[in-house]
Design a protein around this nucleic acid. Sequence first.
DNA 1: AAACTATTCAACCGCATACTG
DNA 2: GCAGTATGCGGTTGAATAGTT
Length: 356
Amino acid sequence: MGRAPCCDKANVKKGPWSPEEDAKLKSYIEQHGTGGNWIALPQKIGLKRCGKSCRLRWLNYLRPNIKHGGFSEEEDNLICSLYISIGSRWSIIAAQLPGRTDNDIKNYWNTRLKKKLLGKQRKEQQARRGNSCQKQRMRKGNENSSMVSSHNTNNQAPYWPELPAPMAIPYSNQEPRFNDHVSIRKVLIKLGGKFSDDHQYQHPIQDTATNLHHHHHQFLPVNLSYSHQAYAPSIEMVYSSSTDPLNTDTYQLANTQYGIDGTGMTMLPGQSGFQAEFEEMLYNNNNPQRLDGLEFFYGDMVVSNGTETTSGESMDWGEMSSMSYPPMISNYEGLLQQGTMLQESTFDELKSTTTV
DNA sequence: AAACTATTCAACCGCATACTG
DNA sequence: GCAGTATGCGGTTGAATAGTT
């Protein structure tokens, strides 16, 4: 037996809204509110529309202060950052962009941002291929010289240790488990904790002078993980202290997708689709690099076993392979300071969907 | 100018969750 | 605790529009 329809499909108009319908809906809601019942609303005002359709129309187009189009660079960055952090949870992302609707952001991402990023990445890869051929030739010529490696000479260390392709991430019934807080903490640190006050890669528009409650904390890293059942992305955040990275009280794990069940932590699988492609784009080719405009996802340092190292030092894959994803750093403080911090309600929402 | 293709985005659909009795 | 219903969400569709041949 199927589910009962939310409205009488036969008597319901579909397709684009006419200006008259818009006016009816808008004026009614402005005067009376929704009455807490979308299903009943269209009948009250004589609209042959499904309640769901009314709701959507109101939320996406009729309610006040809706912005359409004209996404700024800052909005682009924020969308990308949040997408990488939490996946396609458009309503949460939209909550961070005043005046934007989840539908708009979703469309914008699917039709433009995604392509923009992929296009940029492909160009860079091509350029890099050209470069690496050149470098190989140069290296042959200088094999016996005492030349220092290029990334040391120009201080542009690769951002992450060399990694096998994401495909190599183990996912099976024998997922690695982490049975105590120390293990979990270590892993979280390895996942990209950045415990310095170095603001070099904060979001360009942030105001570093702002003195916030979180002043000496950096909110790192925001990693992707997926549930077995729905492959829905979830968020986890490591709240770390800049002064004492190993203080067990300084991190917070708001995530169940690692399977934290009080007895341990289980890594969960990656996913297919663009997100995977995007991650690959970020980390593949044994030559991790940044993406223009996404600099604030990355930090210059990674922390291994609680001690800072330059990210140019490679991490043993034996350790790395126990992680779902390479480290990914989002400068949360930067977001806070530009007034785009996750609203508390949003946090609560995230927590409620991600904590056991 | 016509035909075809690509892109955009408003709207729909179905599922998961929340709410209510 | 359960069933029925409402709401919210993300994925997808398809009409309209723009661009290309």
